[in-house]
Design a binder for these strands. Structure first.
Length: 436
RNA sequence: GUCCCCGUCGUCUAGGCCGGCCCAGGACACCGGGCUUUCAAUCCGGAAACGGGGGUUCGAAUCCCCCCGGGGACACCA
């Protein structure tokens, strides 16, 4: 095969949504798999709708996903090329002027065949097509024309794009033909549908790629999720970036549209959180602790590193996103923990003195691990003649603010003796106050 | 409306080109159970699909035809 050159060609009229991201991903993987070139081409010929902000968003999204490009172009910087090709079309009698615009004459009859790498052979009746404007009255080129010119000039070998472009393909084919140019190969990938099974659009909610980043989705999880929408490799679900580059090809791409399933994304995200080395994940968690207002940077840094890492390691198993994880780590930091609504019945008045004894015992320990805390706690309970079960949940709730979480002694160790004692005493005081 | 595409568990999919290995496999979600100081993880188990109808064939999810359903495109948007 000739050296592969593919492009992702978004129009900068809004944020990059998951459908576009998936198209970019397929192009990128195809290029990397074949050792080819991946080009980012901004299709900003519609100057009224294109914005620089959107370009920044698209770039930030691709960077986050780790899709690096080898060449970058903006269509508006290539108007001279479009002009030249337009003149050529005019010279050849394939285009004409009318209403101040330049039109391309489509054939009146016959059939145009598109040999698509994914859809297969598709036939179009030429009578379905009307002549199309290739240069607007302001001189700017329109999509179908600019696309042909740029794909030609850039030496694009494979056009991998969304299914909605399939009907555009015969039009473009005629422009290639009129210019005596060899068209690239086409691969139209099925659309991603929203839960209501219609084309993904803004009304489907948080579909901006960057929004998922903000919600605490890992880039690798997003990539893994997107690639499995429309592509498969046997029964494998989890793929590293290297595996994707190794396995990805167009023959693994399906023909039917797929529905975006957020639950699977969340599952994948947890899987990837568990696969991320703890120090690296901890760094991300730190960022989210700050972003979510759970803790100030210096508070995070004040935690003993081993304790923070252990917390991240245990909490990630119970979190779907970095945001979840950050919120579940609130109890690691000084300050009152909010008690769950239904915690009242757990906190019986007779627990007050028990909490005080426990506080005193735990406080004596210096940076204890779970095992040391456990023996200290068990010793107190034995002395008082109480089973662990009687105090486990109340203690957990008072210290962590939640009925659920890692093992009790892990939780106590994570919070540290100081906070544990402080919260037990506070609870004991409240119980006493209510009693009296 | 016209044209085009698609149709396997709720969802993502394997299988379909080269019919039998598929009374359809995996994954997410769901349900039940074990483990446990809670939750999660994990383990065990369960429910869950070839859109319908005709053919072809000894045999069809796989091939053919019709129907139905869903989606997309029909701009001086991309």
């Amino acid at each position: 095969m000739e050296k592969v050159r593919v492009r992702f060609a978004p129009s900068p009229t809004g944020y990059l949504h998951v459908g576009g991201a998936r198209t970019a991903l397929f192009n990128w993987l195809f290029a990397r798999h074949h050792g080819g070139t991946f080009i980012l081409r901004i299709e900003d010929t519609d100057r009224t709708r294109s914005t620089d902000e959107a370009i920044d968003q698209i770039i930030a999204s691709l960077r986050w996903l780790g899709l690096d490009w080898d060449e970058f172009y903006r269509q508006t910087e290539r108007f001279h090329l479009h002009q030249r090709y337009a003149q050529e079309l005019l010279r050849r009698g394939a285009a004409y002027e009318a209403d101040g615009a330049l039109w391309f004459s489509m054939p009146k009859g016959g059939v145009t065949v598109v040999e698509d790498l994914i859809a297969g052979r598709v036939e179009f009746q030429n009578r379905e097509f009307k002549d199309l404007v290739i240069l607007r009255s302001d001189g700017t080129p329109t999509y179908n024309f600019a696309c042909v010119v740029d794909d030609t000039e850039m030496g694009i070998t494979h056009v991998i794009r969304g299914d909605e472009h399939l009907p555009n393909t015969p039009k473009q084919l005629h422009i290639y033909r009129a210019l005596d140019l060899a068209p690239p190969k086409f691969a139209h990938i099925p659309l991603i549908l929203g839960p209501d099974r219609t084309k993904l659009s803004k009304r489907h909610g948080a579909l901006s790629v960057l929004e998922y980043k903000r919600q605490g989705i890992l880039s690798q999880a997003m990539v893994n999720f997107l690639v499995r929408l429309g592509w498969s490799h046997g029964d494998q679900e989890i793929f590293t970036r290297e595996e994707l580059i190794q396995y990805f090809d167009l023959n693994g791409v399906g023909q039917s549209p797929s529905v975006f399933d957020e639950q699977k994304l969340l599952w994948l995200n947890r899987e990837w959180m568990r696969r991320t080395p703890v120090p690296k994940l901890a760094e991300m968690v730190r960022e989210f602790l700050v972003l979510e207002g759970v803790a100030a940077p210096e508070q995070v840094d004040a935690l003993p590193q081993a304790r923070f890492f252990r917390a991240v390691e245990l909490l990630r198993d119970r979190s779907h996103t970095l945001v979840d994880l950050a919120h579940s780590a609130r109890f690691l930091f000084p300050g009152e923990v909010p008690l769950p609504e239904d915690a009242r019945e757990l906190l019986r008045p007779e627990l007050g003195p028990v909490f005080l004894s426990l506080a005193a015992a735990v406080e004596k320990l210096s940076d204890p691990g779970p095992a040391e805390i456990e023996s200290a706690v068990r010793a107190v309970l034995e002395r008082l003649g109480l089973p662990l079960k009687a105090v486990a949940l109340p203690m957990r709730v008072v210290v962590s603010g939640s009925r659920v979480g890692p093992g009790l002694f892990e939780v106590l160790a994570m919070a540290g003796p100081k906070l544990v004692a402080e919260r037990l005493r506070l609870a004991a005081t409240k119980l006493g106050a209510e009693k009296g």
